[in-house]
């Protein structure tokens, strides 16, 4: 499917999504509440069939926290990007997608570890790299660590 058609198709599947300007992949901003149902419909639909989540990353944009989903269809070969934003820095919660793409299980644990975004309904929401009793989330821009990070 060519990018323009794909954009239209995705927008009909997820009417709440907003399109974002991007160079490489068509990018959509999905409201956090709609993420799970949107993900299911993107995967289940025959002509989109996004069955491969090839990257899931968390980003701290300072104003808000963001989770970025890079999706590819192994059947059609097209790819899109979903972004989910949350402005709550104290207790951010986003629905998990690890029941849809199992690879998300580890990626979500990593995002929780590094950015403190919790994923609702995740089967094993623990830190993955750092200690259980580590204080703070290192990839946040306001993370301070005088001992280990040398500010130049």
């Amino acid at each position: 499917m060519d990018p323009e058609k794909l954009k239209e198709r995705v927008l009909t599947l997820i009417p709440e999504a907003g399109l974002e300007e991007s160079k490489q992949y068509p990018t959509f901003i999905v409201p956090a509440a709609k993420l799970h149902s949107a993900a299911i419909s993107l995967k289940e639909n025959e002509d989109t069939a996004f069955d491969y989540l090839f990257c899931q990353s968390g980003v701290d944009m300072e104003k808000y926290l963001m989770v970025v989903y890079h999706l590819e269809s192994t059947k059609h070969g097209h790819a899109i990007v979903l972004k989910v934003k949350t402005e709550d820095r104290e207790n951010p919660v986003i629905d998990t997608v690890c029941d849809i793409w199992r690879t998300a299980e580890f990626h979500e644990r990593e995002i929780y570890d590094m950015l403190g975004i919790r994923f609702a309904n995740h089967p094993d929401m623990r830190r993955i790299f750092l200690d259980e009793n580590w204080v703070g989330y290192p990839l946040r821009k306001d993370y301070k660590d005088e001992v280990n990070i040398v500010e130049l």
Partner: peptide, 13 residues
């Protein structure tokens, strides 16, 4: 922000 999607991480899961 730089994110590395490393293959071993997913393969381990």
């Amino acid at each position: 922000r730089m994110k590395f999607r490393t293959p071993s991480f997913s393969n381990l899961s």
